[in-house]
Design a protein around this nucleic acid. Structure first.
Length: 270
DNA sequence: GCTAAATGTTGAT
DNA sequence: TCAACCTTTAGCT
């Protein structure tokens, strides 16, 4: 269940196991047999993540393009691959490692130019060095669309999903319904910097934690789930900062979470 | 054990 | 604007 940090983490897992290795590719489920045949028996050259998209290149120079959607999942392992269970769309085996892909929305083999076209329509990815936050900022600052809507647009900022949207806007005290054009450049700058901080942290941990203070389970030492977020999925509970009831409301088909008191038009800088 | 919802996108209406 | 897709998990029973 991925936002951008998950996909970057998976790219790292795939790179570590398979880069430079000859990889056997198959589709136990049968739905990707033709595609798997194009990858099978070739050395893996490169793996990269861009937003929520994953690209994997083999020596014939074609690319595997994967988008997990809501339900897609990678499973990794070392040693002999287990008997495939369930609908494994793609299995990669090589160098003593294996990886199974289930339930992706997109799993296809594409050419270099096709990959470039996908790159070109993606916005700034907070986890990539080549991200251009100024271009994203120009789009935001002259848009009448709400900042909550803009953050979900992958052609503006790539890799942000519903959790990071809710949490970053809360942390900056920005009203999600405020138009992009109502933000100042300073507010945009602060929001972008916080997205970079949050996604890097998510990449390191492997989960999204946005609160500074967490209660830990006494037994396992893990951060309790309900303390990991400020507003995401906390409908009806008291805001951690001001105790006002957290709201949930639909925005463009997704559930938006916010604190109506903390998140007014301005921001921490206003 | 079952059901509904979910960190998402696409394509039809 | 909405259903479809696919899998996992939270929250019931």
């Amino acid at each position: 269940m991925p936002e951008g940090h998950t996909v970057h983490r998976q790219a790292r897992e795939l790179r570590g196991r398979f880069r430079g290795q000859v990889v056997a590719a198959s589709s136990p489920q049968g739905r990707f047999e033709a595609g798997a045949a194009l990858l099978d028996g070739q050395a893996m050259r490169a793996v990269e993540a861009f937003g929520k998209h994953l690209f994997l290149q083999v020596e014939s120079r074609v690319w595997l393009h994967v988008h997990l959607g809501l339900a897609g999942v990678w499973t990794f392992g070392d040693g002999p691959a287990p008997t495939p269970r369930g609908s494994v769309r793609l299995r990669l085996v090589g160098g003593g490692h294996w990886a199974d892909l289930r339930g992706p929305v997109i799993c296809e083999v594409i050419t270099g130019p096709q990959r470039r076209a996908i790159h070109d329509r993606l916005g700034a990815d907070p986890l990539r060095r080549d991200a251009d936050p100024d271009r994203a900022g120009r789009l935001v600052l002259r848009s009448k669309v709400s900042i909550g809507g803009l953050l979900m647009r992958q052609d503006v900022v790539a890799g942000i999903g519903n959790v990071y949207r809710a949490e970053a806007l809360f942390r900056q005290r920005i009203d999600p319904w405020a138009a992009g054009s109502s933000l100042t450049p300073q507010v945009w700058q602060a929001l972008w910097c916080d997205l970079v901080v949050l996604l890097r942290d998510g990449l390191r941990r492997g989960r999204i934690v946005t609160t500074d203070v967490q209660h830990r389970s006494r037994r396992s030492g893990t951060v309790l789930a309900q303390d990991a977020h400020y507003v995401y999925r906390r409908t009806g509970l008291a805001c951690r900062v001001c105790a006002t009831t957290v709201l949930a409301e639909p925005m463009a088909g997704r559930t938006l979470y916010r604190c109506p008191a903390c998140q007014r038009v301005g921001s921490l800088l206003a």
